[in-house]
């Protein structure tokens, strides 16, 4: 399999951010957004196609995990905290 193209990486990045922003919990949401951004930033320089492929796979799995956890979060939503007030 060919290494992931730049556009594939960017598309995964955007999907992960979009999904992370759906966490109803303020703390999980801010953490997920921050962690996704920092992880992509930290791996910016990775060139090795095998490493890129492995990271993409991990990313896909994490995206699915975020999607599941967002759904669960939505089922058991709690009141907002004071810093999350609109």
């Amino acid at each position: 399999m060919a290494a992931a193209t730049r556009s594939q990486v960017i598309s995964l990045y955007k999907m992960m951010l979009k999904e992370s922003s759906r966490f109803p919990s303020y703390n999980y949401r801010t953490y997920a957004l921050r962690r996704v951004r920092d992880a992509f930033r930290a791996n910016r320089e990775v060139e090795d196609p095998k490493a890129v492929e492995r990271l993409m796979e991990e990313g896909e799995q994490m995206l699915a995990l975020i999607q599941r956890q967002v759904s669960i979060g939505k089922m058991y939503e709690a009141q907002r905290t004071v810093v999350d007030a609109p």
């Binding site: 703390n27 907002r80 905290t81 004071v82």
Partner: peptide, 15 residues
């Protein structure tokens, strides 16, 4: 107020 306090007690337990 229907707002929850923010959590700053990570030694007691963590989410």
């Amino acid at each position: 107020d229907e707002l929850r306090p923010l959590y700053m007690d990570f030694q007691a337990t963590t989410p």
